[in-house]
Design a protein around this nucleic acid. Structure first.
Lengths: 342, 342
DNA sequence: TTGAAAGCGCTAACAA
DNA sequence: TTGTTAGCGCTTTCAA
């Protein structure tokens, strides 16, 4: 390989191989080299060969920042998740990322879930990259961030929830429906005294409300609620179960706002010799894969997270490439998976 | 707000507010507006106020693609992980991302772990973005990808392993040491017949080899090995335990290549009435948070993933800002956490 | 099918 | 402290 020391080169630039270098080597104009690389069908076989050859020889990798700037298309999609560790959302992110990659897009990952000041900064940072689309976990409440997003004109898909007022596109399911149906499911099994273990999270709150409503509609005693705050750990589940056993020992069914909390409840039940499901039935939320193989296996609410990611990728890519998306709202539903704990 | 219909504007561009617009509104030159936004200390109080005011009024968000192109600094860090779902690496990614965000950098996430052809494509896509640094999970074996990375000149930090030949920076620990020390730990507890349940993964392989060596060094019977292949699920752990109980019923200690596999082994043990730790001791790997609160709680090898992420962020940022990193190799070590299962 | 010119939105370099 | 100029590396637009 010949090393070209272009003495005219200024101190700017990264020094990497550019399309110019490739074009020069191939003996064509830069724009022709660009076409050969991006839209080979627009170029003669001869030119194509020469350019591809030059690409090989130089190890040229197109600079997507430059391309994005020139074309106003970054081929970047931003995803915002509240957390990544042990999170039900990662299944969605994984399938989203897969779909994007196959179509030549890349994923930027931002973590919200701290303060709202942080969220604003995050969104500003995201918009600064001029992504071709934004994936949001949850729906964005009215506020500065929402206004900014709207103003940016970037396609947005909100997920994991439903709302009559989406920013743009929406792929989710009804948390109220889940709360109601889980309550009915438990009541139909003859359970009389229901409890709820929930994290301090707005969506869990809506499931809880609908759950309580369904119970009172059946004329049953009030739901015993344990709010574990921000801590979604297994330990919180155990502590919640201690409270239930102490304060409401007649409880015979518990709906938890996450599978991990449910596992904690199960763990404490076993530790205290409380039979599951005989004395207490337990239902989780999220369908973390491995809980189906525990003994007893956990009944839970399954959300098809991979499907959400797949559809979100399709929506975002369609919009990025100028195609309309219709309908822009999809309810992916949910399923109550009955296993041993009920 | 007045809408400016600039009739001279061509059909190019995104139509968004640019630094020019802000500068014009503030009555200064674009570069001055740039300084006010990026290096406010270089600008008079009066100018600063006018520019910031104009930014507020217009809702200007700097275009980082343009900035990155002009300055050859993308403020983007790419991270490559094999998988995101239920993965021990996410703790690292989360702390990496946190550290980067606070310093004004953003994270691009790529998933390897498919074919090596996929990995090459991924790396090419990553390099195309001209990130200021690349975070790799694991070490990159010699090959086309490694050569490319080296040629790109982008700072790289490899993690979760040690090697005498890192690409650039390295933050990890010794898998051989872990295998050896876990074996010694178990042997010192009086265990005689050791087994290993492992996924088909090169690092797990090195732990396994060292484990077996330590055992034979003590003159004990060969280690009974179950390779669960690519499936790291709880179910595989259960199946592995079925095999052990059937083929090597005298096994009294099992080292698993992940906590989830260990949980599967525990689950099957309980299902079959095998006392843990009385008849069989179990050690996991990774220290997934919730397993410390299970009954029995799992003994495991703890890796401080958050620390790896934090240090990686520091390394990468230092290099991105032109500071040297020395030493470039850090061994973060590990800890054997003894809990109920041993 | 190929190319010349212009510019995407920003910042480095130099000058005042 | 502020501004002018000239790019960064690519693609759009228009012309041949």
């Amino acid at each position: 390989m010949t090393r070209q020391t272009n003495s005219k080169r200024s101190r700017r630039g990264s020094g990497a191989i550019t399309l110019r270098d490739v074009a020069k080597l191939a003996g064509v104009a830069p724009i022709t080299a660009s076409r050969a690389v991006n839209t080979p069908e627009q170029v003669s076989a001869d030119v194509l060969k020469k350019v591809l050859d030059a690409v090989q020889r130089t190890g040229y990798v197109p600079n997507r920042m430059a391309g994005g700037l020139a074309s106003s298309r970054s081929r970047l999609i931003a995803a915002v998740v509240p957390s990544t560790v042990m999170s039900v959302f990662m299944e969605t992110i994984e399938s989203l990322n897969g779909g994007l990659f196959d179509a030549g897009y890349q994923l930027m990952l931002g973590q919200s879930g701290y303060s709202s000041a942080h969220e604003e900064l995050l969104l500003e940072a995201v918009i600064g990259r001029r992504p071709d689309g934004i994936f949001l976990t949850g729906i964005l409440p009215p506020g500065k961030s929402r206004t900014r997003l709207l103003a940016s004109g970037i396609p947005v898909v909100e997920t994991w929830d439903l709302t009559p007022t989406p920013i743009d596109m929406l792929i989710g399911f009804s948390h109220s429906d889940i709360g109601r149906e889980v309550a009915n499911f438990l009541l139909n099994k003859g359970r009389k005294r229901l409890a709820l273990v929930r994290a301090d999270d707005e969506r869990a709150g809506r499931r809880a409300t609908a759950f309580a409503e369904a119970v009172s509609l059946h004329g049953h005693q009030n739901v015993f609620v344990v709010n574990v705050g921000d801590s979604r750990s297994l330990k919180s589940g155990r502590e919640a179960m201690v409270r239930i056993l102490h304060d409401a020992p007649d409880v015979d069914a518990i709906f938890c706002s996450s599978d991990l909390l449910a596992l904690g409840v199960m763990t404490e039940a076993r530790a205290q010799g409380v039979a599951v499901p005989e004395r207490v039935a337990i239902v989780g939320f999220g369908d973390v894969p491995f809980l189906s193989d525990m003994v007893p296996s956990l009944s839970t609410v399954r959300i098809n997270g991979a499907d959400i990611g797949r559809q979100a990728a399709r929506f975002l890519i369609d919009r990025a490439e100028g195609r309309a998306v219709d309908p822009r709202v999809v309810d992916v539903g949910f399923a109550i998976i009955e296993r041993d704990t009920t």
